[in-house]
Nucleic acid binder design. Structure first.
Length: 302
DNA sequence: AAGCCAATCAACCGCATCCAA
DNA sequence: CTTGGATGCGGTTGATTGGCT
């Protein structure tokens, strides 16, 4: 039994696209559009490709205004912030970065940013293990119990990144920090009615532990997105700066913060999206991504 | 120059969701 | 309400590239 294949794999070509194939696909779509049916598209053009493959090629490579490589510090900051906030929702993250595709962002995170951030944590752990708080030590991967090992890599990364930021902000009492770790303190600290990033949605998680930990992370993120008190706002600014430090190291603060014309990093931070410039007006903002940010802005009164 | 290895990125795969019949 | 096809998405794979020995 099983699922019917989307195309005839025996007659469909796989692997890298040739310039001729690219030209055929690009010319056709520019002239006729996709016609609302990717499956039928390759047959119309005469391409021996799967419809899904055509769609991917168009979205990730052939579409106009695609940017490749050379992520800016500002983009780094957005990616990291959103990853910590919402996890591996690459399409949503990419929608905040004009010209970037989800595939690009995902690759960039996996090959560069993740290593840059977690690598720094590893270095720091090596130096600070002796003085780390018990909670921090228990969470290091080599000390994990079976339940903790059940956490997905993504969830673990987000925990590590959150903890890394906490550690920088408040080395002695990070777990009491309401900004970063609120879900552990109060089950009401995040809104379970949110239709997009909810505990229910985390039902894909493979274990209850991951379930709960994700909920805590979402809580952390959600509180960060809410209407902060002045004290929390101060924490946010601090967290923003710490993220910058993690990305670019001490002595390089400000690298991400100031771009052409003196624009501050605060203009793009994720906990203070303003109605005017974020999702709407973004390049290729999907309805799904739009829904996420509408939830953020309506539920958390941003 | 050759071989090895790690990094990078395009592309594939399979699952989840959407939506029309 | 149910079903099945189409689409979207995230995880993973594999080919290519570049650096090092």
């Amino acid at each position: 039994m099983g699922r019917a294949p989307c195309c005839d794999k025996a007659t469909v070509k796989k692997g890298p696209w040739s310039p001729e194939e690219d030209a055929m696909l690009k010319n056709y779509i520019e002239e006729h559009g996709t016609g609302g049916n990717w499956i039928a598209l390759p047959h119309k053009i005469g391409l021996k490709r799967c419809g899904k493959s055509c769609r991917l090629r168009w979205l990730n490579y052939l579409r106009p205004n695609i940017k490749h490589g050379d992520f800016t510090p500002e983009e780094d900051s957005i990616i990291c912030s959103l990853y910590i906030s919402i996890g591996s929702r690459w399409s949503i993250i990419a929608a905040q970065l004009p010209g970037r595709t989800d595939n690009d962002v995902k690759n960039y995170w996996n090959t560069k940013l993740k290593k840059r951030l977690l690598g720094r944590r590893k270095d720091r752990d090596t130096h600070q293990r002796q003085s780390a708080t018990p909670a921090m030590s228990e969470m290091s991967t080599e000390n994990m119990n079976d339940g903790e090992r059940a956490l997905s890599a993504s969830a673990m990364e987000r925990i590590q990144l959150c903890m890394q930021l906490q550690e920088l902000q408040n080395p002695l009492g990070a777990h009491h920090n309401p900004l970063v770790w609120p879900g552990t303190l109060s089950s009401n600290s995040f809104n379970s009615n949110s239709s997009t990033v909810t505990v229910a949605e985390q039902g894909q998680s493979s274990s209850m532990n991951e379930h709960l930990m994700n909920a805590q992370l979402e809580g952390a993120a959600m509180d960060g997105l809410g209407s902060p008190s002045s004290a929390e706002n101060s924490n946010m600014i601090s967290m923003e700066a710490e993220l910058e430090e993690l990305l670019y190291g001490e002595g390089n603060r400000g690298k991400a913060g100031v771009v052409d014309g003196g624009v501050q990093q605060g203009d793009v931070d994720w906990w203070s999206y303003d109605q005017g410039k974020s999702p709407v007006g973004s390049w290729d903002f999907t309805p799904e991504a739009n829904a996420v940010f509408q939830d953020y802005t309506s539920v958390y009164d941003i």
